[in-house]
């Protein structure tokens, strides 16, 4: 009787072990398949984004080129003269106003009057590049 019982327990244990092994193998297999599916899906996404990026880059280059074409000085001058009725400044109507260095004698006054620091005055007196 006990021998039969022992055999029966062994069989149950053995079946249980087999089941666990089968489940584990299935888990590993499903995980592997799931990973593969995810990789492929992410791959598709990357490919779609890559295409999108390439399209944006292409469009950006197109727009930059369009800006370069539209800012052609020949075109601007033509529009200014023909469409906007602009003309070149006549003699005497163009006055060039130029920044000059602050005379040395005035540095003290400027420092006092405008509360400019020495560093600011130095910047002010920087020669033109």
């Amino acid at each position: 009787m006990s021998l039969f019982k022992k055999n029966s327990e062994d069989n149950i244990n053995s079946a249980f072990q087999t089941l666990i092994i089968v489940v584990m193998l299935m888990f590993v297999f499903i995980t592997y398949v799931w990973q593969r599916v995810m990789i492929v899906e992410v791959g598709y996404n990357i490919e779609r984004l890559r295409k999108e990026k390439a399209e944006f880059s292409r469009r950006n280059a197109e727009l930059l080129t369009e800006v370069a074409s539209l800012s052609s000085l020949k075109r601007i001058e033509k529009i200014a003269a023909a469409d906007l009725g602009m003309k070149r400044p006549e003699k005497g109507s163009l006055i060039v106003v130029r920044e000059i260095r602050l005379p040395q004698v005035m540095i003290g006054e400027a420092e006092k009057d405008y509360k400019l620091t020495k560093t600011e005055l130095k910047g002010l007196n920087k020669p033109r590049s």
Binding site: I95, V96, V97, R98, E99, I100, Y114
Partner: peptide, 9 residues
Amino acid sequence: NEERVLMVN
């Protein structure tokens, strides 16, 4: 013949 002035920022 240009006008020269002191320009402060």
